[in-house]
Nucleic acid binder design. Structure first.
Length: 183
DNA sequence: GTGCGACCTG
DNA sequence: CAGGTCGCAC
């Protein structure tokens, strides 16, 4: 009721900055690059991001936007995995161990479609391992009825957050979006 | 106070 | 994906 909507956070980006200060926003190319980076890291720190987007003039807004992107990536990722985990449960899967995400599985297709649209990047095998583990964790949790707890996903996030791997140096190159589009 | 993450919404 | 809110930690 009448409260000012001036909450802190991303919305505070609009300030009286000179044209030169507020220049250089993130481009579609940066987004594409970020999506591919997701195959290696699900929880990149702002520090790490700064070292992989050397062509970006970081500001609180830019940093927040990049962090937000990965947050959105994770959201999509976990939703997809959970969906397939529940589906496997309904289909009568018994051993969580038998749930492996391969390059020809439907889950992979969905994820690859989202983060690697043109399928022009070779997804690292490590990502398949992480995805498989995530799938198994969700499967086991749901099967055990853990989802009754409002915060049942937290333990899973904790596990997955420790599985980030190093990002290839090639990603540091400004126009890497082009070179990476091989194989 | 600020930064970050999850969750919800459009 | 961006916008906003809430909660947690520093």
């Amino acid at each position: 009721m009448g409260m000012d909507m001036l909450s802190s956070g991303l919305a505070t980006c609009r300030h009286s900055l000179t044209p030169r200060q507020m220049q250089e926003a993130l481009t579609p190319g940066h987004l594409k690059k970020a999506k591919l980076m997701f195959f290696f890291t699900r929880y990149p720190s702002s520090t790490l991001l700064k070292t992989y987007f050397l062509d970006v003039q970081f500001s609180r807004c830019i940093t927040s936007q990049l962090i937000k992107w990965f947050s959105n990536f994770r959201e999509f990722y976990y939703i997809q995995v959970e969906k397939f985990a529940r589906q496997a449960l309904l289909e009568g899967v018994v051993d969580a161990c038998t749930l492996q995400v391969s390059r020809d599985s439907e889950l992979f297709r969905a994820l690859n479609m989202h983060y690697n649209k043109g399928n022009d990047f070779e997804v690292p095998g490590r990502f398949l391992e992480v995805a498989s583990l995530t799938l198994q964790e969700f499967f086991s949790a749901v099967r055990a009825g853990k989802d009754a707890d409002p915060s049942w996903k937290k333990p899973i996030y904790k596990i997955i957050s420790k599985l980030d791997s190093d990002i290839p140096e090639g990603f540091k190159a400004a126009g890497c979006s082009q070179e990476l589009l091989h194989s």
